[in-house]
Write a protein that binds this DNA or RNA. Structure first.
Lengths: 340, 340
DNA sequence: CGGTGATCTGTGAACGTACACAGAGTAAGT
DNA sequence: ACTTACTCTGTGTACGTTCACAGATCACCG
């Protein structure tokens, strides 16, 4: 094997000590920002670090510190993942940003099959990560059980899994729905309806509750169309039902952007102009919002923020802090565009 | 600090040796599948491993082996990333799958600013990764230079960066464009145009070249609308221009699915039916394709495959194999749906 | 029967770091 | 002058693994 000039030996703490004329211990103290180092020694060491190009060896540090300096990022079902929920990519990015700021490494763990579940379970038990961020956990998830058993610092993003008391971060669907409905009402609309989706899930039910809150005494149950899913087709159907129930409707809150897109289609079909005749607002600020004609006013899901906060929560637990009970709810800015 | 029962000390190679009544060395040989160990000892050790729940300590192994067992996954510009190019998520997933199969860990490195560039450069020089996969490298990218200087095993996915001779994996835009255009012509269309995007990039220029190839003598420069980006809005504009230039157009090849979606909007606006009056095909097979009405016929980008192959290329280089010159081009199946 | 090779095993280094401890020096209070 | 406290520094050890080396045992052959 020829000596590769580009791959010369990395500088160690020893080289720095030699260069600065001090001992390993003192260098270690400077590197880890500990007290009890003379100003003189400190600057000499910092110069030496710069000169020899010293970067601490993670493996050696992890070995002696008994931790991995890594956080697992667990997601389920890669296939439907980026279609169903384009937010996951942003959650990942947000978490990664917070983690690398704290000098932690993110490790993506994808669960796609039974075999993957076992692999990840072993991985977690093996101490390869100091904590985990879990996205879209299922009910009765074996991974959740393992995390609980190991007492691994963790944060769940999205809907809290099962009933267990584990830290999670999400958004306040109810106040967000209330806020955008308020905003819609402020444009002078008087007959406002809602296309309510997924009422069997927290998110769906809460969005309807927020809508009800905002309307107060004006709330009319006849102006709520109930549809099963957050999808485009549901929006078309819901909007048709709403128009049939109340032809003079002048505002609609759709439970998601996809639903709103469907609603726009139905409105166009019925010859209504948007936002002239009817104001439409959605929820998610997904790619749909920008695809609609006119551009959709909606509630922004702070996906990157969710990842960031989840990471921070795990980091805080690692520092020994108690996780916040009941989870963390993020605020959701309203994005006002052209559809209302 | 109270002793946490869930966090008991991990079993080491020593515990296994004790349990099996042999020495560390022999256990190490079994774990690493090396020869020169008696069948008797092997089964005793395997039983002991199972019993004490031994998992090798990566940090210790990495320390002595002088490598990190990690591969960097470098991407630029997170913001526009998941909007402009939904494939990146799948590339990531594909690479991760191949890497974890080989027991390598993927480390996501996001470059979003000048500061990030420095951080990543330091990270690479620090020996934290044994190789890198780079997505969407820019021209004259400082990261590319550092990778070259360090002689770090690497694979670029997508467009080959600059002129340098570095291993890359991508798709053959030209033949793919040619293939789908051929297919469109085979449906009996006689006046076929193209909305050509991003002609300053290889991908854009190659797709136009492929279109020209397919048309041969039928090619009419007047039937090419040139737009700056691969986006929806560009599709709307391009289609309007095309219709103005040739009202009797009966086929369109859009340079991306987003552009095709925009084109569909403009066609609907002009009262043309799809695929009745005009056949439309796109490129990418992204989420857009399934959102369109009618469902879009398009060229499938094997995104996961790109990530997988890039990972395999890096792994092969780590094994000492020479990287393939000129890069690897993946085949791109055509997905025939309803829009043509 | 001695030599040679193959097979198997145990042991003593490393790898690069953090941490505990000991010790030296200084300053202030008794 | 003697404690006491505080600041600063160097050294030895441990973390869990791999690797090189040295033995041990055995079979085979001249």
């Amino acid at each position: 094997m020829v000596t590769n000039p580009g791959r010369r030996r990395r500088a160690t703490i020893h080289d720095v000590a030699l260069e600065a004329g001090v001992s390993r211990g003192t260098v270690s103290r400077v590197v880890n920002d500990e007290p009890y180092v003379s100003a003189e020694a400190r600057i000499a060491i910092e110069a030496a670090i710069e000169k020899v190009g010293y970067v601490p060896n993670t493996a050696a540090r992890n070995l002696v510190m008994q931790r991995s300096q890594a956080i697992g990022f667990i997601v389920h079902e890669p296939h439907s993942l980026f279609l169903e929920d384009p937010n996951i990519g942003e959650i990942l990015l947000g978490a990664n940003a917070a983690l690398s700021l704290a000098d932690f490494q993110m490790v993506c763990l994808i669960i796609d099959s039974e075999r993957d579940t076992d692999r990840v379970a072993r991985y977690l038990s093996g101490g390869f990560v100091d904590g985990v961020i879990v996205v879209s956990a299922r009910k009765n998830d074996p991974i959740t059980r393992i995390i609980e058993k190991l007492g691994l610092p963790s944060a769940f993003v999205g809907h809290p899994p099962d009933l267990r008391q584990l830290p999670f971060v999400g958004i306040d669907n109810r106040s967000s729905a209330r806020a955008i409905t308020d905003r819609l009402l402020a444009t002078g609309r008087t007959r406002v309806g809602m296309i309510a989706s997924a009422l069997d899930r927290d998110s769906g039910a809460d969005r309807l509750a927020g809508f009800t809150d905002a309307l107060g005494p004006l709330f009319d149950p006849a102006l709520v169309a109930r549809v099963p899913f957050y999808a485009y087709a549901d929006g078309v159907k819901g909007m048709r039902a709403l128009l049939a129930a109340e032809p003079h409707l002048d505002g609609v809150f759709a439970a998601s952007d996809a639903v709103a897109a469907g609603a726009l289609e139905a409105l166009r079909e019925a010859g209504r102009s948007v936002p002239g005749d009817v104001g439409v607002v959605g929820f998610d600020d997904s790619a749909w919002a920008l695809r609609c004609q006119p551009l959709l006013s909606t509630v922004h899901q702070p996906a990157a923020g969710l990842g960031e906060r989840a990471a921070e929560s795990v980091l805080a637990q690692l520092r020994g802090e108690e996780p916040e009970l009941g989870g963390i709810l993020l605020t959701t800015p309203i994005v006002w565009r052209d559809s209302a």
